[in-house]
Design a protein around this nucleic acid. Structure first.
Length: 330
DNA sequence: ATGTCTTTTCCTGTTT
DNA sequence: CAAACAGGAAAAGACA
């Protein structure tokens, strides 16, 4: 089961990595351009100086490559302060760049703009930045190498008995897999009372109750609360599972690639993955599908009648068509 | 600090 | 019967 945990985490990290960086303005970003692995970074403890007692810095917890201009400015100001550097020596008009640009600056360029502080900035940036290509290839390699084990782990969390007749039973039925694996990954003993539909509590309030697991989650991961990265929409998440076969792992398939018709093969597994991405281990296909149904009105999805677990991308979605995908991937 | 937007949660009823 | 589908309602959480 160590394998189940490890691989699931890798998978979820890969996904967080992909999405942590996504700019909402871009319809989609290829993983190669949007690695990130912020979770791993945070879990391992980043080398940043802590800002005890104060607000968390806007840039902390995010990969420098993906900082906005404002975050870059924040970080520079922070470095100026930290190194007791004379800010008047810096032409802040030349700091109008985003994280990607900043990371692209050579040491000489940084020295040019920031003087001696350039060396500090350069070193700090290097510390904050892991190697993108290495990161990605490592993850892909692992996914590929352990593809079978991963699949088995999803289908058979305890690795014993009934190895379900390998994947994609196109039955249209849902699956309860990952639930067990999930309870191992995200133990709930901290909240023994939280149980769906507990009859003891009679009529509960309507609407969305406060999520109980969040603090527990954060404690579990040994990190402070971090805002979810922006630009992560459910339909984009679904789309990316479909267009990156290396992420798909038999979770979904195209029914009609040209028309954007697709089907959930492992609905609960996809829901769990979505839940992992949103740090919400209570996600289910039922809830995910409610969100999907909201997309009909906005024409991000089109209705497909009479076909269970089948949806179709609508005219307000993008990034899934063959030509778009080719562009995205190159 | 207020409003908007996208979910998330729950629920009741219907369909497959 | 179980699993999906349909949507209404209300609230959470992120973001502007």
């Amino acid at each position: 089961m160590a394998a189940a945990c490890q691989i699931s985490n890798v998978f979820s990290n890969y996904f967080s990595a992909m999405y942590s960086a996504e700019d909402p303005a871009l319809t989609s970003a290829p993983p190669a351009a949007a690695f990130g692995a912020e979770d791993a970074e945070l879990t391992l403890g980043s080398p940043q100086v802590s800002l005890e007692g104060t607000e968390k810095a806007s840039w902390s917890g995010e990969e420098p490559q993906f900082w906005s201009k404002a975050q870059v400015l924040d970080w520079i100001s922070y470095q100026v302060e930290k190194h007791k550097y004379d800010a008047s020596a810096i032409d802040f008009s030349r700091c109008n760049m985003d994280g990607a640009t900043l990371c692209g600056c050579a040491l000489e360029e940084l020295r040019l703009v920031f003087g001696p502080l350039g060396d500090q900035l350069h070193a700090q940036l290097r510390d904050l930045t892991s190697s993108p290509s290495d990161e990605l290839s490592w993850i892909i390699e692992l996914l590929e190498k352990d593809g079978i084990a991963f699949q088995e782990a999803l289908e058979n969390p305890f690795g014993t008995g009934t190895p379900q007749s390998s994947h994609s039973s196109d039955s249209g039925g849902s699956d309860v897999d990952l639930d067990l694996a999930d309870s191992k990954l995200f133990p709930r003993d901290g909240f023994p009372n939280y149980k769906k539909g507990d009859p003891k509590h009679g009529k509960r309030k309507r609407g969305r109750p406060r999520k109980l697991s969040k603090e527990y989650w954060e404690r579990l991961e040994g990190k402070k609360s971090k805002h979810a990265p922006r630009g992560t929409h459910l339909w984009e998440f679904i789309r990316d599972i479909l267009i990156y076969p290396e992420l798909n792992q038999g979770l979904m398939k195209w029914e009609n690639r040209h028309e954007g018709v697709f089907k959930f093969l492992r609905s609960e597994a996809v829901a769990q993955l979505w839940g992992q991405k949103k740090k919400n281990n209570n996600m289910t296909y039922e809830k995910l599908s409610r969100a999907m149904r909201y997309y009909y009105k906005r024409e991000i999805l089109e209705r497909v009648d009479g076909r269970r677990l089948v949806y179709k991308f609508g005219k307000n979605s993008s990034g899934w068509k063959e030509d778009e995908v080719v562009q995205t991937r190159n």
